[in-house]
Amino acid sequence: MSAKNLSNTSRTNWEALEEMEDEGIDYSDIPPLTAEFFDRATLRIPAPQAQRLVQIDPDVLKWFQDQTGEHRALINSVLRRYIEGGGEHSSV
């Protein structure tokens, strides 16, 4: 990008857009999303975000949060020890 392009300012009237009601927005140039679109769609989650998608029961999370130190590191440490120990547990 050239320095000339960086010095251009937007000619968008942001104040008018902020005051616009939803009914005033023209969607005519946007095709509707069909069931076929969603059937073919793929959810893509960046790896750093995907690492935070594990669901933990609220009471379990609270227990880890109540411990001293960083609860995420503690959870990771407990899981790592479980894996390194063969991952065997009578209730799992």
Rank of each mutant, 00 (worst) to 15 (best):
L43C: 13
N13I: 02
V54C: 10
D66M: 06
W14G: 04
Q67A: 06
H89T: 01
G24E: 12
W14L: 09
N76M: 01
E70M: 01
R52H: 15
M1I: 03
S28G: 11
S91V: 06
L74N: 13
I45Y: 09
I30D: 02
H71P: 14
R44A: 07
A73P: 00
G85P: 00
L74Q: 11
R81W: 05
L43Y: 05
R11H: 09
D22H: 07
R44Y: 09
V92E: 04
Q51G: 13
R72S: 09
A47R: 15
W14I: 06
S2H: 04
F64D: 10
T42W: 09
R11V: 08
T68M: 02
S90P: 07
S91F: 05
E88D: 08
N76K: 11
L6K: 13
G87E: 05
P31W: 01
A3L: 14
R72G: 12
L61C: 01
F37I: 02
V78A: 15
H71R: 02
Q49D: 12
E15H: 07
L61T: 08
V78H: 08
H71S: 09
R52G: 14
E23T: 11
I30Y: 09
E23R: 06
L61A: 15
D66Y: 00
Q55S: 13
Q49A: 13
W63E: 08
I25N: 01
E19R: 15
I56G: 05
F37W: 10
Q65H: 04
S91Q: 09
E18L: 10
G86R: 15
I30T: 07
R72A: 07
R80C: 07
Q65I: 07
R80Q: 12
M20I: 10
A16D: 12
L43V: 15
F38M: 15
S28C: 05
T12W: 09
S7D: 08
S10L: 06
R44S: 14
L17H: 08
Q55R: 14
G24I: 00
W63S: 06
L17A: 02
D26T: 04
S91W: 01
L61Q: 14
I45P: 08
A41L: 14
T9P: 00
D59H: 07
E21M: 02
G87H: 05
I45C: 14
V78N: 06
F38K: 13
L6P: 01
Q65Y: 02
R11F: 05
L79N: 10
N5T: 02
T9W: 01
D29Q: 08
A47F: 13
D26Y: 03
R40L: 14
I56M: 11
S7I: 03
A3I: 10
N76E: 11
H71I: 00
E18Y: 07
E21V: 01
S10M: 01
